[in-house]
Amino acid sequence: MTTPHDPHSTPDDPTSRDAAPLDAAREQAVRRLLAEAGGPEAVPEEVAARLDATLADLVAERSEGADPATTPVIAPVTDLAARRRRRLMRGVLGAAAAVVVIGLGLQFTDDTIGDGVSSLADGDPDRGNDAAGAIESGDGSGDTQDDTTSESQLDEFAEADAGDQSQRSGPTNEDQAPRSSLAEAKRRTVDEPVRVIRDAHLRDDLVALQDRGLPAPATADYSGVVVTAPPGFACAEMELGPGIYVAARYRGEPALVGFREPVGSTQVADVVRCGTGDILRSMTLPAP
């Protein structure tokens, strides 16, 4: 009925020009078929529910006084494409852990440089702490569920994480790796909302962050410390092991999700508390 899809074809490549121009009758026939196959599609219930929940988060964010045009909106995205990739990799485990040590502080200011990378060595600790407070008071609607997590639940999570890590093999690279101060880390400023990491959807949220927050695998450099965050995101100082860190919020507080260098087909993601460096959650994901 059809030929296989050529994912490498572009408008300018030969394969996209392989068909001769149509005569009017055949062109009309094609257009008729397309028109017949067109028309409205009811949004599936699952998709509608996702959209409604996201919209509710957006509205709640704005109702708390944030300017939707300038404030990083916290809107958790359940990335179905990422989930599909994850399904394929389910059951494959084994990677590395990371070590984080406490240090000073810094803030991502508004000097957005797109995808460029610059040093964070000029971070101002006071400014960073002030902004961190502002973030905490400015949102939270998207993670109400997380803020109400009980201690017993946290214990369960810790046990689950421990179980996850127990499936990893051998000593980790990060255990012996040199650590860097957050203020000395390289930063990558992006115009992306700060995403909420939810306990109840930890894997989905981490995969979504992995999908959207990391550079292309071919260009990703895990040898140092790179922090990706939107302007205005603040995180108190600490020392970090090698990896690519992405700004997030976890249980109502600013956090960094550290993605470690992939090992084989897996990659470890650690949720790191800003200022203390505590690893709050850790999970092994399929490599990007």
């Binding site: 009925m1 059809t2 408008p11 068909a19 055949r26 026939a29 257009r31 008729r32 397309l34």
Partner: peptide, 30 residues
């Protein structure tokens, strides 16, 4: 240009349907 190329390619892929549908459906002009 994109539409033209797309239709040309679709005409090849849907050749059987175009042949059979021409006779049974009036031309659309959506």
């Amino acid at each position: 240009s994109r539409c033209s190329r797309a239709r040309s390619r679709l005409a090849l892929l849907l050749a059987d349907l175009i042949t059979t549908s021409d006779a049974s459906h009036p031309v659309s002009s959506a």
